[in-house]
Design a protein around this nucleic acid. Sequence first.
DNA 1: GCCGATTTGTCCGTATGTATC
DNA 2: CGATACATACGGACAAATCGG
Lengths: 244, 244
Amino acid sequence: MPKSKYHTIYKDLKSKIEIGDYAYQELLPSEHTLVQTYDCSRNTVRRAIQELVKDGYVQTMQGKGVRCIFLPAEQASYTIGGIESFRESSIRNHRNGTTKVLCFVEITADEKITKRTGFPVGTELYYLQRLHYLDGIPLIINHNYFLKSAVPGLTPEIAKQSIYEYLEDTLHMTIVNSKRIMTVEKITQIDEKYLHINADDYNCMAVISSQTFNSDGVMFEFTQSRHRPDYFRFQDNAVRKAPK
Amino acid sequence: MPKSKYHTIYKDLKSKIEIGDYAYQELLPSEHTLVQTYDCSRNTVRRAIQELVKDGYVQTMQGKGVRCIFLPAEQASYTIGGIESFRESSIRNHRNGTTKVLCFVEITADEKITKRTGFPVGTELYYLQRLHYLDGIPLIINHNYFLKSAVPGLTPEIAKQSIYEYLEDTLHMTIVNSKRIMTVEKITQIDEKYLHINADDYNCMAVISSQTFNSDGVMFEFTQSRHRPDYFRFQDNAVRKAPK
DNA sequence: GCCGATTTGTCCGTATGTATC
DNA sequence: CGATACATACGGACAAATCGG
């Protein structure tokens, strides 16, 4: 939705890089040049470049310039990265994603749930189990805990489509950030049953546990995503901070 | 190393949050107030806050303020996150890390290596296998490929200590960013042998493949890190971008 | 509902520092 | 050494969202 100037420039540069207008290892035009190109201040150009750095598209070098380090990813497998709904990443990867709701109940957080999710004891929650298929193959089992007060009117029908679409488009919630922990865990009987994995083949799952916050600073979701290991691929770009 | 004003403010606010001066869900002082506190411009304060957002420490809300969303992590297990050497993360987690060099050879990239690492065919490389112990337990096997021309004078002795220390302190290289892909892969005989894992117990490993760039825009390292699944824990904070 | 005060978001122009060539 | 390029910092202006009266 951001139609700000810096965001426009960011998108323009990003697409130019993806198209190949700026090749791998090539220098982008200098900030001064970009200021003239986009008729804006240097701060605005710098902000756009900053976003590209975060994406791992370019690298700034004081005194030298801004170098493109974008390499088109091998889209062989299904990749995930930022905060995305299953539906969004399906579309981005040009796949056909569908969802089956295995379980949809209202629960109240007890000690055990509190320990796992971080919701205080007594909090009213929706608990869902959902199975995500990609091109007909069951890949992911999600265990979602949603804060009932923040996500009113959730139904199994919505859960079958896209909950994030409902939150953002209907409830006008803004999803902001997500703390995630990735681990590898033993396969469970539920995993085995729904994902059709042979434990002789793989006896582990890739697990992403996440706490997600909205723009009111409320943690409204805790989710444990259990991924079939042979289809799991998580991409990331990290920027080094000088130690100390 | 950065002794800039915004970095000083960033560190100060960060430590205040970690100490608990600003509690979970509490609002930080307004930008205007912070400007007076630190005697600087608003831009400088905003930049410091921006860093805290990236760290997942705070959340900004237009018209409301800046909310602290920092929760002290359960440091039960060994967590990794940003670009860090094994030595650095050992220290951060208050553990005793040691390294054993299993293999140290000079090789030239062939088709197979090129496909895996992204180094062009014919590139001269150091190839290392290293085993990392934490408190005496073998946890990680690293397969490192270093660009020989960018990392001259590397020795097994250095590899036993910290390669990043050598790169940064001795060669004065600046490590900038790292593209990482996390997957789950089947355990190999090498893994089994050195990490003492029983394949009946876990037959998978958490694998992080990374391409790392220095400030010259040169990809000087490709590494595959294979982690014992029962000790693997990767932390992350993602910021949602509006879809489209 | 309106209005004004507060707070963050965007954008501009300028000046100075630092690194590269 | 000077020219170029990015990094830091300042101050000001207006927009957008929020909140209280």
